[in-house]
Amino acid sequence: RRRVRAILPYTKVPDTDEISFLKGDMFIVHNELEDGWMWVTNLRTDEQGLIVEDLVEEVGR
């Protein structure tokens, strides 16, 4: 599965499916959606939700 790492921290918008995360958090990407959004699991918190791909970088497989 594709893995990405947060290059900046992010605080979710209330009442959305987004998740908050810290710089350096690692994610497993489950689905890539329209407009640059991805459905992921945060490996640090085990939380699932939406993040925007502009805030992450690819991690070598």
Rank of each mutant, 00 (worst) to 15 (best):
R1H: 07
R1M: 15
R1T: 14
R1P: 06
R1F: 15
R2Q: 08
R2K: 14
R2F: 08
R3F: 14
R3K: 13
R3I: 11
V4T: 04
V4A: 05
R5K: 15
R5H: 05
A6S: 07
A6Y: 02
A6L: 01
A6E: 02
I7K: 15
I7H: 06
I7Q: 05
I7Y: 06
L8A: 15
L8N: 10
L8D: 09
L8M: 15
L8E: 11
P9N: 10
P9W: 03
P9G: 11
T11H: 09
T11N: 13
K12A: 13
K12P: 10
K12W: 02
K12N: 06
K12Q: 08
K12R: 11
K12F: 00
V13D: 12
V13A: 14
V13Y: 09
P14A: 13
P14W: 05
P14C: 09
D15N: 13
D15L: 07
D15H: 12
T16A: 03
T16F: 03
T16I: 01
T16S: 12
T16V: 01
D17C: 10
E18N: 03
E18C: 06
E18A: 04
E18L: 06
E18F: 05
I19Y: 02
I19A: 00
I19V: 10
I19P: 00
I19R: 02
S20H: 00
S20P: 04
S20I: 02
F21S: 01
F21Q: 03
L22K: 11
L22M: 11
L22I: 14
L22C: 09
K23N: 07
K23R: 10
K23H: 06
K23I: 09
K23T: 11
K23M: 09
G24K: 00
G24R: 04
G24S: 06
D25Y: 00
D25A: 00
D25P: 04
M26D: 14
M26K: 06
M26S: 09
M26P: 06
M26T: 13
M26Q: 11
F27P: 03
F27I: 02
F27W: 00
F27R: 01
F27G: 02
F27C: 05
F27E: 01
F27T: 01
I28H: 11
I28P: 02
V29R: 04
V29Q: 00
H30G: 05
H30K: 09
H30E: 14
N31H: 14
N31K: 15
N31P: 02
N31D: 15
N31C: 09
N31L: 08
E32R: 11
E32D: 13
L33W: 09
L33S: 10
L33M: 10
L33Q: 14
L33H: 12
E34F: 07
E34L: 08
E34T: 10
E34M: 08
D35M: 09
D35K: 12
D35N: 13
D35L: 07
G36W: 02
G36N: 09
G36H: 08
W37D: 05
W37R: 15
W37A: 13
W37V: 12
W37Q: 15
M38D: 02
M38P: 02
W39I: 06
W39F: 12
W39M: 10
W39G: 04
V40M: 03
V40Y: 03
V40S: 02
V40P: 03
V40G: 04
V40A: 14
V40I: 02
V40K: 04
T41G: 00
T41E: 08
T41Y: 06
N42E: 04
N42V: 00
N42A: 05
N42H: 05
N42D: 04
N42R: 03
N42Q: 03
L43F: 05
L43Q: 14
L43M: 14
L43H: 04
L43N: 05
L43T: 12
L43Y: 06
R44V: 04
R44I: 03
R44N: 07
R44K: 04
R44C: 05
T45A: 03
T45K: 00
D46R: 14
D46Q: 09
E47N: 05
E47H: 07
E47W: 01
E47L: 05
E47R: 05
Q48S: 13
Q48A: 11
G49L: 02
G49E: 03
G49H: 02
L50G: 04
L50A: 14
L50P: 05
L50R: 15
L50V: 12
L50Y: 12
L50I: 12
L50M: 14
I51Q: 00
I51N: 03
I51A: 05
V52A: 15
V52I: 14
V52T: 14
E53T: 15
E53H: 13
E53A: 13
E53L: 07
E53Q: 12
D54S: 15
D54R: 15
D54V: 07
D54T: 14
L55P: 01
L55W: 08
V56D: 01
V56E: 00
V56L: 04
V56Y: 00
E57H: 07
E57A: 07
E57Q: 10
E57N: 05
E58L: 06
E58W: 10
E58T: 13
V59A: 13
V59I: 12
V59Q: 11
G60M: 06
G60L: 07
G60V: 12
R61L: 15
R61H: 14
R61S: 14
R61N: 14
